[in-house]
Design a protein around this nucleic acid. Structure first.
Length: 476
RNA sequence: GGCGGCAUAGCCAAGUGGUAAGGCAGAGGUCUGCAAAACCUUUAUCCCCCAGUUCGAAUCUGGGUGCCGCCUCCA
């Protein structure tokens, strides 16, 4: 089965044919590190992490590159406000990035290049563009001449005339064309700078991605991803710069852009100030839940945010996890059968789930639709568990399939198990005691005590459930 | 002004020509001391409105209405 994905460049779904068979190269525009990342950033990160995981699950040898913009106006400004060194500030938020990313089950990229570590490569590109007449230096500022690049506007679907007609930008008198953009910025007083052929300065924003993508993935790499607001000007400019110095080769083959998260139907953004930091949302909901919420909508559809949506996501995820837990509980009670297994409905259901899941994901990474395969399988497992005859083999197969498919989307469906080792042993002993006391209470029909124990334990995060076969407990 | 997107049940959300996935919530039932979990049944004669194309449209075309995004830093 081949993957079809929506290419922003052609505005249509295309079959994914990688540059090299069996391999996939992805470059994702990561965050500018001047703060903890917010839910909007999280959506982009989770979406491309999901794309990466799915490609890996399909057998591709994936190289995933995600940059950190660690020098730019906002970082400098923020550092000045806090009275610290911009590099120290950027470094701090890069470290913090990995904490939140890990909570959201976002795997580290194969390469996490930083802009400040690729100044030489950027200077090389700017120099080459200048040499080719696509860039010009004015008093230490180097601009890209958009008129000299015929394909300018092909990604965002607009012509230079359109853009100038609607330009709200304050025209920089130095530019030859108002749409020309900075490749290299002359250093201002107190700002960090590097030596260059044009004097002391720092790179423009767009050039870093060109330099790093070309360095680690080379021309014509497979997928370039990012948030939809990067289409213009950032990605448009990346294409211009990169292809401007590439002699006819394409920069990236497929462009993928995720839609935004909105708050009350309005875009969540740093400039509007209506953003939620992942760090804060994690205080109320687990990373797994946030991720489940984020992937519950197709990546190209807008996604509105409020706590209620996370509560819904949390309950849905619980359903999946309950199913895995119940299956494992049942498996623990029966001995593995030594009889040869036979085809039964559950085995068929597991196969069907895998197939439906793959069909959904092959179609432009439709994770929302893939969810239904997960839920369908969970129901099949649960129903199977109510039956008299249970094949351990079938149950194992179905449970493994459910967990495996969940894992492809980055969900850990294994029950929470934060306590380990020695402490777990102690907890078990305490629980044995507590449940023993409760059992006695129930025996004496002392429902008040029995219910009090159950309620209080639930508040602590330990769920107690009575079943016909006895009591069960688990951490939540 | 230019370019683009979206509108599906109480809520969330798939589906892009063949007669409405899935989740949450709700209702009834089974189980239970009660609960929880789970299971079974049930919940959109209809997909913003109006025309049109078609044997057939939520899905295509045209026209409305509403909402949103990009065109400036933003995932």
């Amino acid at each position: 089965m081949t993957i079809r994905l929506f290419n922003s460049l052609t505005r249509s779904k295309e079959e994914f044919v990688p540059r090299e068979p069996g391999k996939a190269s992805i470059y994702a525009c990561g965050p500018t590190t001047y703060n903890y990342f917010h839910l909007g950033n999280a959506r982009m990160l989770v979406v491309f992490d999901m794309v990466r995981r799915y490609l890996i699950s399909k057998g591709y040898d994936v190289t995933y590159v995600q940059n950190f913009t660690d020098v730019d106006d906002k970082i400098i400004k923020r550092a000045a406000e806090e009275g610290c060194d911009p590099f120290v500030l950027a470094r701090k938020y890069i470290d913090e990035y990995f904490k939140d990313a890990s909570a959201l089950q976002i795997l580290p990229a194969d390469v996490h290049p930083k802009a400040t570590e690729h100044i030489t490569e950027m200077i090389d590109i700017v120099a080459k563009l200048e040499e080719k007449g696509l860039a010009y230096n004015i008093d230490g500022d180097v601009y890209f001449a958009v008129e000299k690049f015929p394909g300018y506007g092909k990604l965002s679907g607009r012509s230079l005339e359109d853009m100038q007609a609607g330009a709200r930008v304050e025209v920089d008198e130095k530019k030859r064309n108002p749409m020309d953009f900075a490749l290299w910025k002359k250093a201002k007083k107190g700002e960090p700078f590097w030596e260059s052929p044009w004097g002391q300065g720092r790179p423009g924003w767009h050039i870093e991605c060109s330099a790093m993508a070309l360095k680690y993935l080379g021309p014509g790499f497979d997928i370039h991803g990012g948030g939809g607001d990067l289409i213009f000007p950032h990605h448009e400019n990346e294409i211009a710069q990169s292809e401007g110095c590439l002699d006819g080769e394409p920069f990236a083959r497929y462009w993928m852009h995720n839609a935004f998260i909105t708050i009350n139907q309005e875009k969540m953004s740093k400039s509007l100030g209506n953003f939620f930091l992942v760090r804060d949302v994690l205080k109320k909901f687990s990373g797994n839940v946030i991720r489940f919420y984020l992937l519950g909508t197709h990546y190209r559809s807008p996604l509105d945010f409020d706590d209620e949506k996370l509560v819904m996501a949390s309950k849905g995820l619980d359903r999946l996890k309950n199913s895995v837990r119940l299956a494992q509980e049942a498996l623990a009670k029966v001995l593995p059968d030594e009889e040869p297994f036979f085809e039964d409905d559950l085995i068929a259901a597991a196969r069907l789930a895998r197939k439906s899941f793959e069909e959904a994901m092959d179609d432009d990474f439709n994770s929302a639709q893939a969810y239904s395969a997960l839920f369908d399988l969970a129901r099949e497992i649960n129903t199977y568990l109510t039956k008299e005859i249970k094949q351990p083999f079938a149950l194992t197969e179905a449970c493994n399939t459910l967990q495996e498919l969940g894992q492809i989307l980055g969900f850990d469906l294994q029950a929470e198990d934060e306590i380990s080792g020695e402490e777990e042993g102690k907890l078990s002993q305490v629980m044995d005691l507590v449940l023993d006391i409760r059992k006695n209470a129930r025996k004496n029909k002392d429902w008040a005590t029995a219910d009090l124990i159950r309620d209080r334990m639930k508040e602590i995060g330990i769920v107690i459930e009575d079943t016909p076969d006895g009591v069960r407990w688990y951490l939540k």
